[in-house]
């Protein structure tokens, strides 16, 4: 994570401004707390990428990707070491959200749905090989895994079964998170949006 002083105006800015530097820990915190909140309410979704979504929307794909990466490393070092490797998935999600947001795919409720599907595909494509390597294809969510079990019991290849398991869970989670991020972002005061967007 060496940082260089390159000034660019595109969404791919590499310079880590103080605004982005304080946004990233906040995003990781939001991920963590939103996940705890969802668990507390026993919601059928994780919400653990909400902060990553918001960081990408506020400060671009790089900020989102770094937030996602650090989130998984911290989570891995505290609760479930294996989840560290899913940092790659989080990076993918951060980049996808940042690009989609910059291209205007978070501007209306209809477009958000399309974005959510694209993000779920990105997430599932990156996660599936990891699921196969570490967990024989399972995701660890009982009802997703029962679909997986039913599929391989019917001799459907592991890769397809595992992708299905992951994608079904991902689509539900990412649709909810995308809409939450969309509503929360709209509620943010303009001064906040300007503060994190403008490169200082």
């Amino acid at each position: 994570m060496r940082v260089q002083n390159i000034k660019r105006s595109s969404i791919w800015k590499i310079r880590l401004s103080t605004a982005t530097m304080t946004l990233i820990p906040a995003a990781v915190g939001i991920n963590y707390v939103a996940k705890a909140f969802a668990e507390g309410l026993k919601l059928p979704v994780w919400l653990g990428t909400l902060g990553t979504f918001l960081a990408s929307m506020l400060a671009g794909p790089v900020a989102g990707a770094i937030s996602g990466f650090i989130n998984n490393v911290i989570y891995g070092l505290t609760l479930s070491p294996v989840s560290t490797v899913y940092a790659i998935t989080s990076i993918g999600i951060g980049i996808a959200v940042g690009v989609l947001h910059a291209k205007g795919w978070f501007s209306s409720a209809k477009k958000v749905f399309v974005s959510a599907i694209i993000i779920a595909i990105v997430s599932a494509v990156i996660s599936t090989p990891l699921n196969v390597i570490f967990w024989g294809g399972q995701t660890g969510i009982p009802w997703g895994d029962s679909i997986f079990a039913a599929m391989i019991a019917n001799h459907i290849p592991v890769w397809i079964s595992s992708f299905t398991d992951e994608f079904i869970l991902d689509i539900l989670d990412k649709v909810v998170v995308a809409y939450l991020a969309f509503f929360i972002y709209r509620q943010l005061p303009q001064r906040m949006i300007r503060f994190f967007r403008d490169d200082k």
Partner: peptide, 9 residues
Amino acid sequence: VIKTLDQSM
């Protein structure tokens, strides 16, 4: 979220 981002600012 707003409180957290405010503190970040």
